[in-house]
Simulated scan of single mutants.
Amino acid sequence: MAELQRLGILGGGQLARMTLQAAIGLGIDTVIVSEAPDSPAGRVARREIVGDIGTAPVQAALIDCADVITLENEFIDAAILERLAERGATVLPGGATLRLVQDKLIQKQTLAAQGLPVPAFRAVETPDDLRRAAAEWGWPLVLKARRNGYDGYGNATLRSADDIQAALTRLGWPQRALFVEQGIAFARELAVLVARRSDGATVVYPVVETTQRNHICHVVRAPAPIPAALAERAVALAHAAVAAVGGVGITAVELFQVGEETILINELAPRPHNSGHFSIEACVTSQFENHVRAVLGLPLGATDLRAPAAVMVNLLGERDGTTSPYGLDQALALPDTHLHLYGKREVRRGRKMGHVTALADDLATAEQRARAAASAIRL
């Protein structure tokens, strides 16, 4: 039997924390790199390295105690991952994948070059580019930062020419590179998680429906209430998108359902994703465990649902201050309902502080349970 490898994770947030929890269950030693001490993941890892991963001493310390390095978000510059690889580290996903994904304009160009369906898009160099896009596609438009945008930070919806200047200013143009997409009147937002090893072995999770609140994922329903043929189409597109960027580990593929039959790819995230948190209780193998298995080259686990339906609701901060949760007793009293708090010391309005997942025989019952539990908890 091959010796289990030591796993390093770049990042100290909740995604790293839940990935570490899966790794611990497999007996894998873990280390994380966090910019600040006492991170949610740092309190779980066997070792926490505090510092800037862009510096040589932090890189050397990480390489010394990790055989395989992965990441919890796509904001680490690809050049840093390539530098770690040059120093002998195995980094998955690697710099080549991040170069195709972390700049969302390049991501869209990569997918379009493979013939995959995406919303119409173009680079933005001047305000006139937005006016030309509107003349061609009509309003609304969605203006996006090419890099480092998440949970709606870095997006602006333009409903007329009057919105252009304020949106450009808010998103930091011209210092920040932007691009624009055609606004899509979608029927549903969907997501598919794909776990893929370096050798191409792949498993896929059930297609889910996601609902956003203020651009932040609020509710995830599994399986998505869509026809089987449409789900098969979504899975096929997800497979192709992940292969197009050479994804390894978990890659989340966010999709738009347009009308009854059309699916467009919105964007990719090359790491565990909010749309897959339901899998901890609802699937045979969670997205976090399959991410660990994939980057370490271990056999991938089954992704079947353990119950007919599962619904996840995010717990978002409603104030600014020190975290002080209450209402746990009411939430935990609900049947087949599971609570996850992320261990963040400070709460902020809109900040992801935890999630609730409920299982049931149907989506309506699961959602009722999950919403009731989420409403009971105050942070």
Rank of each mutant, 00 (worst) to 15 (best):
T97I: 06
A113H: 05
V295W: 05
G327E: 08
L20I: 15
M312T: 14
A78Y: 11
G200T: 03
K108F: 01
I280Y: 00
T126G: 02
L4A: 15
R319K: 08
E82L: 11
P270A: 10
T157K: 15
A309W: 01
I53C: 07
R348I: 04
Q107E: 15
F121K: 01
A309H: 01
D64G: 13
L116E: 05
R122V: 00
A358E: 12
V91A: 09
A133Q: 07
G327Y: 11
V194C: 06
L168G: 10
L328Q: 12
G12W: 05
D329N: 10
P272K: 04
N155L: 15
R146A: 01
E318V: 08
L264N: 00
R213W: 08
P270Y: 09
T322L: 14
D362P: 04
A120V: 00
L7D: 05
F186S: 07
V284A: 15
R17Q: 05
L20H: 04
I164C: 12
K144L: 02
D362E: 05
L339V: 14
P206W: 06
H218K: 06
P223Y: 10
G115D: 06
T337I: 10
E289R: 11
A60S: 15
R369K: 12
S39I: 00
A201I: 01
V258L: 02
P225H: 08
G354K: 03
T157Y: 06
D38N: 14
A373W: 08
G249S: 06
A89F: 06
R132M: 07
P299I: 08
L334V: 08
L190D: 11
L20F: 03
R131I: 06
R233Q: 14
D162N: 09
P299M: 09
A2M: 15
A134R: 07
P227H: 08
R221V: 12
E125G: 14
W139Y: 15
G297W: 06
P335Q: 07
D162W: 02
A241R: 00
D38H: 12
G13P: 05
V33F: 09
E318L: 11
E267P: 00
Q59F: 08
M353L: 14
T19S: 13
I76E: 12
G8K: 10
E289W: 01
G42V: 03
L190Y: 07
Y342S: 02
N214H: 12
